[in-house]
Amino acid sequence: MTYIALDTTDLAIAAILLIANGLVSVWFRLGLERTLAIAALRMVVQLAIVALALRFIFSLDSALWTALFALFMAAAAGYEVVSRQERRVTGVAATALGAGAPFFAGLVATLFATTLVIGPDPWYAPRYVLPIFGMMLGNALQGTSLVLDFITSAAVRERAAIEARLALGAGRYEAVDTILRRALTTGLMPIVTAMATTGIVALPGMMTGQILAGVDPVEAAKYQVMILFLVAGSTGMAVVAAGLGAVLLITDDRHRLRLDRLTRK
């Protein structure tokens, strides 16, 4: 298995296309050039730090360091989920939900993969656990963000209808049933679209990376199929947990709608 190593010059050449985006922003007065530059710089710094950290953790092959890094990833995911909400629920419960839903879903899918599907020795080998967990966490984070944002925004928009149902004796989940179902559909749509278009419209990043590293395309495709199945499962668990939890956060035990708990971004 061989691959072509990249140096700093190669990365600089690839960045020309990003600079072209900045020029488009300037030409059309979009005001995105600063945002693009910051995002690109942040990406490079974050990947460099993560790459060095993974190299260190891989060399240790320690379950403790693997777990600590996974917890750090989950904490960062929780921050991202909360920061993306247009209307967010105040208090630590919202942050716990934003971090807990993708973490739990990603953990279950990762353990399922390493213990029952791939079976590395040891099962907690960071070279397998952390990349898989990162993919599960990233997709579950996206689904969680979409669900929470949809439910909070829809609750404000459809307040009168929800309160009317509650006044007629409906429980909290019954009153927001339509909103919850639409939110879950929204949260699952990215992975459904990804599975439907993979292989025809686009080659996913993992499969492309393996092929570039010299892996046989058929073997790379097998791994990609496995990952998409796992991503679908973890995303489903995350969006359901986030949706049910969000309903609890915007209502109380007396089945009242509590929009006073929301704060605008």
Rank of each mutant, 00 (worst) to 15 (best):
D177R: 15
A105D: 05
G106N: 03
V231W: 03
L17H: 10
L30F: 13
A155V: 05
P122A: 05
T9Q: 10
V108Y: 04
T198K: 11
A167V: 10
R88W: 06
V89K: 00
A241D: 07
A94H: 09
F72I: 13
V240Y: 05
V44I: 13
V89N: 01
L130H: 00
L184N: 00
D7T: 09
A53Y: 09
L47C: 12
A76R: 11
V81E: 01
M1G: 15
V218K: 11
L141P: 03
P131G: 00
V225Y: 03
I38R: 14
Q85A: 10
T144D: 02
L259I: 03
T9C: 07
V92H: 11
R88I: 08
A194P: 04
K265S: 14
V201R: 03
P131N: 06
L54H: 05
M206R: 07
V239L: 07
F28S: 10
M195T: 12
I200Q: 09
R165A: 12
A242I: 05
V176M: 15
G31Q: 03
A63R: 11
T110C: 07
Y173T: 08
A232V: 08
K265Y: 14
M73Q: 06
R256S: 02
A20R: 10
M189V: 13
L168P: 11
D149H: 02
D252L: 07
A5W: 10
Y124I: 04
M226V: 09
I16A: 13
I250P: 02
L68Y: 13
I132M: 05
L68P: 09
L30T: 08
Q210T: 05
A40C: 09
I118N: 02
A238L: 02
M237K: 05
A5E: 15
R172S: 05
L141D: 04
T197V: 15
V247Y: 00
W27P: 13
M195W: 10
I19E: 12
S153K: 15
G22C: 04
P120I: 03
R181Q: 15
I16R: 09
D149M: 04
V156G: 08
L36M: 12
R264C: 10
V24N: 11
A175V: 04
A96G: 09
W123I: 10
I250R: 02
R182H: 12
A175P: 02
I38N: 13
T251C: 05
A40K: 04
Q85W: 02
L146S: 03
L188T: 08
L47Y: 11
A113H: 03
A70T: 04
A155Y: 01
G134M: 03
L184C: 04
L203H: 04
A161E: 12
N21R: 11
W65A: 09
L64G: 08
S145H: 00
G245C: 02
A154H: 10
R258V: 04
A160Q: 13
A113F: 06
G243Q: 00
R165K: 15
A14G: 09
I13W: 13
T178R: 14
L148N: 10
G138I: 04
L257G: 00
P126G: 02
E158C: 09
L228H: 08
A183T: 01
R42L: 10
A53I: 14
L188A: 15
D252M: 06
T208A: 13
G22S: 06
V240N: 04
T114Q: 12
I151R: 01
R84F: 06
L257K: 00
T95M: 14
E158D: 12
H255G: 08
R261Y: 08
G106S: 05
G187W: 00
V82W: 12
A76V: 11
